[in-house]
Simulated assay, not measured.
Amino acid sequence: MAHTYTRATYVWFVAAVITGVASGFLHLVRSHAAKDDAAPVALTILAFGLTGVTALLIFRGIMAAADEQDRHAREQLARNRALRGPDASDRAGQRDRH
């Protein structure tokens, strides 16, 4: 398939990578900062909150990519129909019925 992604898709995935790295770093700091099995609550909340944001960014990036691929497929279909002309689709439909 041809390259159908736009800059917006890349921005979503780059943002997800950045927040994912920051989240992983916070989880590491949280696990090493724990003293007497009591991790700092604010750091724990921040680490898990950033993990959730990362998941949402990945989901949004996937949805943006799927939308762009669908739009590209619709444009290709419309372009192909315009090249064949209106009668070509009618003939193809009649061929399928017989």
Rank of each mutant, 00 (worst) to 15 (best):
R71W: 01
V29A: 08
D90A: 07
E68A: 01
M1V: 07
T19L: 06
L46T: 15
A33D: 12
L83M: 06
K35M: 12
G49E: 05
M63L: 12
A88Q: 11
R84A: 15
L77G: 02
V53C: 14
T19M: 05
H27P: 01
M63R: 13
I62Y: 11
S31K: 09
A39C: 06
A73Q: 09
A73H: 05
I58N: 01
D70R: 09
A66T: 14
R79E: 15
H98K: 12
V14M: 05
A33I: 04
G20M: 02
A73R: 13
A88M: 06
A15I: 01
R97V: 11
A39Q: 12
G85F: 01
S89R: 06
R60Y: 03
D96P: 00
L56V: 08
L43I: 06
R97H: 05
A16I: 05
R60E: 03
T54N: 09
A16D: 00
L50D: 09
L83P: 00
A88C: 07
F13C: 08
A64E: 15
D87F: 03
D37P: 00
N80Y: 07
A34R: 15
N80T: 10
H27V: 01
R95A: 13
A42T: 07
L26F: 15
R74A: 10
G93I: 11
H72F: 06
R91E: 14
D96G: 03
R84H: 12
A2I: 09
F25S: 10
G61Q: 05
T51N: 10
R95G: 00
E68H: 00
L50E: 10
I18T: 14
P86I: 01
Q76I: 03
I18P: 03
W12P: 00
G24Q: 06
A33K: 08
F48H: 14
L57C: 06
R95H: 07
Q94N: 13
K35L: 15
R7D: 14
G93Y: 02
F48C: 08
G49H: 10
I45N: 12
A88S: 14
L26C: 08
T51P: 00
T9G: 07
A34T: 09
F48L: 08
M1I: 05
F13V: 12
R30Q: 07
S31V: 05
T6Y: 03
E68Q: 11
L56Y: 04
A78W: 06
V29T: 09
A22W: 06
I62L: 14
V41T: 10
A39E: 12
L57I: 03
I45D: 09
A42R: 12
M63F: 08
V17S: 11
I58M: 03
F59G: 07
R79D: 14
A55Q: 02
R60N: 06
D67Q: 11
R97K: 10
G85V: 01
V17K: 04
T4M: 09
R71T: 08
I58H: 00
H3A: 14
H27F: 07
